[in-house]
Each structure stands twice: as structure tokens, then as C-alpha cells.
Simulated scan of single mutants.
Amino acid sequence: MAADYHRPTRFPPGMFEAYQGAADPAQVSRVAHDTAAALLARVRENPDPEIVERLVSYTDSHGIDTIAELWAQASPKSLPGALWRLYLLRTLIRQDPRGIALAFQRGSEVSHTIDQVVAGAAIPTGPDEVRELADTILHGVFAGDFAVALERASAFCRVTSAGFADLADDADVSDAVHPDRPTEYTRRALRLTELADEFTACARLWRHDSLD
């Protein structure tokens, strides 16, 4: 997914020096785990609202590549992998809030689970509501119950995936203007299902003090 984003990477002064020049995968992995653990521990120990807000909106100013360079290669079932996926989900929502809101609303209509309740999005769910939910989930990572934040992200992904799958079924493959729309919707549904499973696994590990 990191290859989809091309904003220039800008590291804040004095941060992430250890990453630069990390040639071997083992070193990259160590830096990813160390920075994720240090960042989370420091903020959760003293969740200053201003700092938390800056972290939530970090990619708005610096781009997703900054996070991708550091954490995207980490295992999905790891702390840096979980943080990367949470930032990625927020970015995907902010890039297409209308499309994501439409899929979430459709998923809420066709899904017969409590996932929409767990996700906690406002009803009806429009672009503003999904953007707000993304920020709320990430805020919970730094100043709330980390496992609950992961579970909310997972539930949101499942509902939205169901919505994209249903939209793919409705899409007209003969549409000359958007002939690839069913394939695109299906691809999004599959990726969101993967994200949901990864968030659920990470939440379970966190609750057992095994997410590192």
C-alpha cells in the first residue's frame, strides 16, 4: 500500500536518525519496534491533549510516507504494524470520505452484525462522520483503550468491506465510463477484510500483553 502514496518523506529534526542507513532487515525491524514502543509508551504515560492531537493529524502535514518508511514493513501482528495500519486507514478515509461513507452506510444496511455499533460512527454516516470516526479511533490509541481502538477499527473495516462488496454487485460492468468499478470495489472490500482481521488479531495480542 505504501507504493500508492508519493508525498515526500519529511522527518522531524532529531527523530528517526536510527532508521537512516539501516541496511539490513533485522535493523529495520528493530528500529520499527523500538520507535513504536517508545512513542506509545511516552504519549500514553502523559497523554497531553495537544501532543495527542498532533500525532492524530501527523500525516496531514507530513504525508503517509513518513509513517510507511518506518513501520510499513513490520509484521501485521506487531505494534508498529498495527500503528501503520491505523494511520493507513485514516489516510484512506480522508482521501475518499464520500466513497468510504457510502460503502459504510451500505454495509450498515446489508450487514446483520453489531459491527456498526462497535465502530461507533454517527448515523446517518456521511463524509464528515467517517473523518471524525477515523480521528476518534486514532485518538483512542494514544489516550484510551488501545484494544478497543483496534476493535473499533476492525468493525469499521468489516462494515465498509460489506458495503463495497454490495456496491460491486450493483455496479454495471457494461458502464463505458467506469468499466473497472466492480473490480475496484471488490479489491477494496478484500483489502478492508484483511485489515479487519489484522486489527482483531492485534487487539487480542494487546489484551494478552503480547503485542510488541
Rank of each mutant, 00 (worst) to 15 (best):
D4W: 08
D4V: 10
R7T: 13
R7S: 15
R7C: 10
P8D: 02
P8V: 03
F11L: 13
M15H: 12
M15Y: 06
V31T: 09
L39C: 09
A41D: 10
R42C: 12
R42M: 14
N46L: 14
D48R: 15
D48K: 11
P49T: 04
E53A: 15
E53W: 05
L55R: 11
V56R: 09
Y58H: 14
G63W: 02
I67N: 03
E69L: 12
Q73V: 09
S75N: 13
K77A: 14
K77Y: 07
K77F: 07
S78L: 11
S78P: 02
L79S: 02
P80T: 06
G81L: 09
W84L: 05
W84V: 04
R85C: 05
Y87L: 13
Y87N: 13
L88G: 03
T91G: 06
T91D: 04
D96T: 00
P97W: 01
P97G: 04
A101G: 06
R106S: 08
G107N: 06
E109P: 04
S111G: 11
H112K: 15
I114G: 14
A119M: 07
A134E: 02
L138D: 00
G140H: 05
V141A: 08
F142V: 11
F142W: 09
G144S: 10
G144L: 10
F146W: 02
A147N: 03
A155Q: 06
R158L: 08
A165E: 12
A168R: 08
D169R: 13
D169K: 15
D170L: 14
D170Y: 03
V173E: 09
V177D: 11
V177Q: 14
D180Y: 06
T183C: 13
E184K: 15
E184R: 14
R188P: 00
L195S: 11
A196Y: 01
D197I: 09
A201Y: 00
A203H: 08
R204Y: 08
H208N: 15
D212Y: 07
